[in-house]
Design a protein around this nucleic acid. Structure first.
Length: 425
RNA sequence: GUGCCUGUAGCUCAAUAGGUUAGAGCGCUACACUGUGGAUGUAGAUGUUGUGGGUUCAAGUCCCAUCAGGCACCCCA
């Protein structure tokens, strides 16, 4: 307590309570991924800078990656995202991997950014991707997985929504307005919510757009039915209906996503109140694997960081209560004479499949019970001189204060029955 | 990387226009006597007021720097 060495900026300690939350997210991600047949994989945490530079030296790499020299002088990067590693892995075994490839992963990423709510420098991210299919069914499946995840953690369509757009559709519409350059136009769209109308017009004019084009663009972005003009989107939404998750989705013309490699479908999940930043983001990337030196294998996927989803789940109180101790029983003990009996009881319970703690010191019973209560342990096993003399043990249910006395030989069976009865009701 | 706001016991916050030994609630520990908990009561501990400088007779309170957190930008999970 004297010297307090702080954590690295933007890095978090995971105390048991936070670890439990992280594991809860992981468990849901795993369940949903496997429900759709996806295989778990991982890439290295350390990569060469080259891997990301190959993707056209974006800001993500130049300014937001942790880069350092190893002892050989090589530039090493703490991975800021997983998709390039995935593309590399797939490209390297393109000839032998059966397609389609359905993979998912959950692991740490690092970005050298200014920490804010929902954003830190070290975070965990769920990545799920389907590669080797161009079909709109693949896009819809990935999107449906996002929705199924929300359903799994108890978030309803009234609380979160996945917004969809299609870059191919937007590109056609933008071209129809006579705007030659697509990229600046997408940037402009991305900022519609962030800039005031006059500022937005000014920004657009600076990009070389005429007032007519700006007006046309504005009308475009207000048109919530624009998706009907896209055959891909029409089918996309139909498939989501068939998959039973349509109510989680809405068409949103202003969603275009920042990453350059998205080509068609793009998606972004948000809380309905708009209180937090995006929960997940993703889309289809047709050329990324080829850019990594492999065959042209297109893919679609999304990434979900652990922080925003945690904030949203906590806001709606969907995070399960934290079980302090995994133990179902606490074995108390009174002193040296009773030690063997208590140790034996603890062992019998553990052998019987019941997670069991034994208090490490023969302190007052009051203190041992208080501890069991504070840790949320359901049962206390009491073996004092009276019980020991008769070969018995007392089992106390903390919640009801009820207690029964049983033969030590029957302890594990009796305890198991007590636990089952209670969970059965 | 840019701008702004914040930083007091484990937690949430107090501390009159800078003035003597920095307080409260919750929590925590001990006791209420020796085999029964979450209630109550009593007692108690804890802070070099984020850190380092400076101004002043005197600073938690003013100034500068620095670190951390928050908000906007940027970017994005």
């Amino acid at each position: 307590m004297k010297t307090n060495i702080p954590t690295v900026k933007g890095a978090r300690d995971f105390y048991p309570e936070q670890m439990s939350l992280r594991n809860w997210l992981y468990a849901n991600m795993k369940t949903v991924s496997q429900k759709f047949g996806y295989q778990e994989y991982d890439g290295p945490f350390l990569e060469t800078l080259e891997l990301y530079a190959a993707k056209s030296g974006e800001e993500l790499v130049k300014e937001q990656a942790f880069v350092f020299n190893d002892r050989g002088g090589e530039q090493i990067t703490l991975r800021p995202e997983l998709t390039p590693s995935l593309a590399r892995m797939v490209a390297a075994r393109a000839g032998q991997l059966p397609r389609p490839i359905r993979w998912w992963s959950f692991g740490p990423m690092w970005r050298y950014e200014r920490p804010q709510k929902g954003r830190s420098r070290e975070f965990f991210q769920w990545n799920i991707d389907l590669l080797g299919s161009d079909s709109i069914e693949a896009d819809a499946e990935i999107a449906a997985i996002g929705a199924e995840f929300f359903r799994a953690v108890g978030l309803t369509p009234g609380e979160v929504t996945i917004q969809i757009n299609n870059r191919r559709l937007m590109a056609g519409q933008i071209a129809a307005l006579g705007i030659a350059d697509l990229k600046p136009a997408l940037r402009l769209i991305d900022r519609l919510d962030k800039l005031s109308p006059p500022a937005w017009d000014e920004y657009g004019a600076a990009q070389g757009l005429t007032p007519d084009q700006l007006a046309g663009l504005r009308a475009l972005l207000a048109d919530k039915d624009l998706w009907r003009a896209s055959d891909e989107l029409t089918r996309f939404f139909d498939i989501l209906s068939a998959l039973g998750v349509r109510d989680y989705f809405e068409y949103e013309p202003t969603v275009v996503r920042g990453l350059d490699y998205y080509t068609r479908t793009v998606m972004e999940a948000r809380d309905r109140d708009g209180e937090f930043r995006a929960i997940l983001g993703g889309g289809r990337y047709d050329n990324l694997v080829a850019d990594m030196g492999g065959d042209r294998i297109s893919g679609v996927g999304f990434a979900m960081g652990d922080m925003v989803i945690a904030l949203v789940a906590r806001k709606y109180e969907r995070v399960p209560p934290f079980a302090k101790s995994p133990a179902a029983a606490l074995v108390t003990w009174f002193g040296p004479e009773m030690e063997a009996a208590s140790l034996g009881a603890a062992r019998a319970l553990r052998d019987g499949g019941i997670p069991t703690e034994m208090y490490p010191d023969p302190v007052k019973l009051e203190k041992q019970l208080k501890y069991a209560d504070a840790q949320g342990i359901r049962l206390a096993i009491i073996i004092g001189p009276d019980e020991a003399a008769a070969g018995n043990a007392t089992v106390k249910t903390l919640a009801s204060r009820a207690q029964i006395t049983v033969k030590q030989a029957d302890l594990a069976a009796q305890v198991r029955q007590l636990l089952e009865n209670r969970s059965g009701t």
